[in-house]
Simulated scan of single mutants.
Amino acid sequence: MHPDVLADITDLEKTLTAIEQVKNPDQLAETIRELEEKASDPSLWDDQEYAQSVTSKLSAVQNEAQRLRDFRQRLEDLPVMYELAAEEGEGSELADEERRALRRELEAYEVKTLLSGPYDAREAVVNIRSAAGGVDAADWAEMLLRMYTRWAERQGHSVDLYDVSYAEEAGIKSATFVVHGDYTYGTLSVEQGTHRLVRISPFDNQGRRQTSFAEVEVLPVVETADHIDIPDSDIRIDTYRSSGPGGQSVNTTDSAVRITHLPTGTVVTCQNEKSQLQNRASAMRVLQAKLLEIKRRQERAEMDALKGDGSNSWGNQMRSYVLHPYQMVKDLRTNYEVNDPQKVLGGDLDGFIEAGIRWRVAEEQQDSR
Score class of each variant (00 low, 15 high):
residue 311 S to K: 08
residue 312 N to E: 14
residue 313 S to E: 11
residue 313 S to Y: 11
residue 315 G to W: 10
residue 315 G to C: 13
residue 316 N to M: 10
residue 316 N to E: 13
residue 316 N to C: 03
residue 317 Q to H: 02
residue 318 M to C: 14
residue 319 R to G: 00
residue 319 R to C: 03
residue 320 S to V: 05
residue 320 S to M: 10
residue 322 V to Q: 02
residue 322 V to S: 02
residue 323 L to Y: 12
residue 324 H to K: 12
residue 325 P to M: 06
residue 327 Q to N: 08
residue 327 Q to I: 00
residue 328 M to V: 14
residue 329 V to G: 00
residue 330 K to D: 04
residue 330 K to V: 05
residue 330 K to A: 03
residue 330 K to P: 01
residue 331 D to P: 04
residue 332 L to K: 03
residue 332 L to M: 11
residue 333 R to W: 03
residue 333 R to Q: 13
residue 333 R to I: 07
residue 333 R to F: 06
residue 334 T to S: 09
residue 334 T to M: 02
residue 334 T to N: 02
residue 335 N to F: 12
residue 337 E to T: 05
residue 338 V to D: 03
residue 338 V to L: 14
residue 339 N to E: 08
residue 341 P to A: 06
residue 341 P to Q: 03
residue 341 P to N: 05
residue 342 Q to N: 15
residue 343 K to I: 04
residue 343 K to R: 09
residue 344 V to P: 01
residue 344 V to Y: 01
residue 344 V to K: 01
residue 345 L to G: 02
residue 345 L to R: 01
residue 345 L to P: 01
residue 345 L to M: 15
residue 345 L to H: 02
residue 346 G to P: 08
residue 346 G to L: 09
residue 347 G to H: 06
residue 347 G to Y: 08
residue 348 D to H: 12
residue 349 L to D: 04
residue 350 D to Q: 15
residue 350 D to L: 11
residue 351 G to V: 07
residue 352 F to Q: 02
residue 352 F to R: 02
residue 353 I to F: 13
residue 354 E to C: 12
residue 355 A to P: 04
residue 355 A to W: 05
residue 355 A to H: 08
residue 355 A to Y: 04
residue 355 A to C: 09
residue 359 W to M: 09
residue 360 R to E: 13
residue 360 R to L: 11
residue 360 R to H: 10
residue 360 R to D: 10
residue 361 V to M: 14
residue 361 V to W: 11
residue 362 A to W: 06
residue 362 A to F: 06
residue 363 E to F: 01
residue 364 E to K: 13
residue 364 E to G: 09
residue 364 E to Q: 15
residue 366 Q to Y: 13
residue 366 Q to P: 10
residue 368 S to D: 12
